[in-house]
Amino acid sequence: MKILNKVALLFVLATQTIYAQTNQETNLWKSGRPDGHAPISVMGDHYHNKGDIMFSYRYMFMNMSDLLQRTSAVNNSYAHDAGYMVTPLKMPMQMHMLGVMYAVSNKVTLSAMMNYITNNMDLQMRMPSGMTSKFSTKSNGFGDLKLGLLYKFINKNKNSLHGIVGLSIPTGTIEAEDETPMSSPNKVQLPYPMQIGSGTYDLDLGFTYLGQTTDFSWGSQLKATYRFGKNEYEYSLGNKYSFNNWFAYKTNNWLSFSGRLEGLVVESINGANPNLMPMMVTTADTSNSGGTFINAGVGFNIYAFKGSLKNVRFGFEYALPIYQEVIGIQLAQQQTFTAGIQYSL
């Protein structure tokens, strides 16, 4: 009888342990669902379990056009009258991003990302006679290498919190050149927005909170980018501070729709490149840099939860600024498209 009692006690204890583990796993925040990742434009939004690896590719297209002075629209004649010989008309930018994430433990996930950037800018030049003419410049190349570490603090009751530490290594050029009507047939160094890299080591620090229910998920990410020192051309890009918030609805096991709202503050460029002439073009004048922005986006995620494409994820987002206050005279931000594919092993 004593043996039977011991066996019964062991059975009860084992059952309670299995129930507790099952209940704990059920209450974890999980990434293996379509809304288990943030909108595709958000970086560092999730971590992985030990030994997991994820490869990703993202494509982003961002367009800027029309001039703003603070929050007011101004025309190119206004900028010319302010003393600038050349003013920008529009600037489309394309970025291809390749990334990899690897979890060295259940707490720590490492990441790396490299991008290839193509910048195009159409400009208008006003001659002393008052006549105007248009021309274009272009730059492209591999950008700065970004390394990161994500540390999971908690994952409990379908809520999660992790920290982000990232380092940007200045592998992208800050010496991009092109021919202009004033320099022809020679090429000259292009202004700040047309450069591919920052030229400085930059530190990213942030926190990401995630929450889930059966059909909904949400998240918030607070992140700051700090520039260290100045580059070889005696300037550094402005620090950045962002607060990203998103909400998603899981319609079924493979599709979710999302909405996102971001507040972004960008400080002005610190210092100045002595090779640039500030009064030649607005984009070469550091007093025309930085600003405050509120961006809104809508998108969707498609997730293959079974079959030969299991763990393949496709995301798309369309974003627009709903408020922007620039410092000085700058091109206004317009629409941004981001699409990407992620595959986890």
Results as ranks from 00 to 15, higher is better:
residue 13 L to A: 10
residue 23 N to E: 15
residue 17 T to F: 08
residue 30 K to T: 13
residue 9 L to M: 07
residue 27 N to S: 15
residue 58 R to Q: 01
residue 19 Y to K: 11
residue 49 N to E: 12
residue 11 F to T: 12
residue 10 L to I: 09
residue 54 M to R: 01
residue 8 A to L: 11
residue 31 S to H: 10
residue 48 H to A: 01
residue 9 L to Q: 08
residue 53 I to T: 02
residue 10 L to S: 13
residue 21 Q to R: 12
residue 11 F to V: 12
residue 17 T to H: 06
residue 14 A to K: 09
residue 21 Q to M: 10
residue 18 I to G: 07
residue 11 F to Q: 08
residue 36 G to M: 05
residue 12 V to R: 07
residue 10 L to V: 09
residue 25 E to W: 05
residue 9 L to R: 02
residue 48 H to D: 00
residue 21 Q to H: 10
residue 34 P to T: 03
residue 58 R to M: 03
residue 53 I to Y: 03
residue 14 A to M: 07
residue 7 V to E: 14
residue 17 T to S: 02
residue 46 H to N: 12
residue 52 D to K: 01
residue 30 K to A: 14
residue 52 D to C: 01
residue 11 F to S: 09
residue 31 S to T: 14
residue 53 I to S: 03
residue 11 F to A: 13
residue 57 Y to N: 03
residue 42 V to S: 03
residue 30 K to W: 13
residue 13 L to H: 04
residue 48 H to T: 01
residue 53 I to W: 00
residue 16 Q to T: 14
residue 52 D to I: 04
residue 17 T to N: 00
residue 12 V to C: 13
residue 18 I to D: 07
residue 30 K to F: 12
residue 29 W to R: 08
residue 30 K to R: 13
residue 47 Y to H: 10
residue 40 I to M: 01
residue 50 K to N: 10
residue 15 T to W: 13
residue 23 N to D: 14
residue 51 G to V: 07
residue 45 D to A: 06
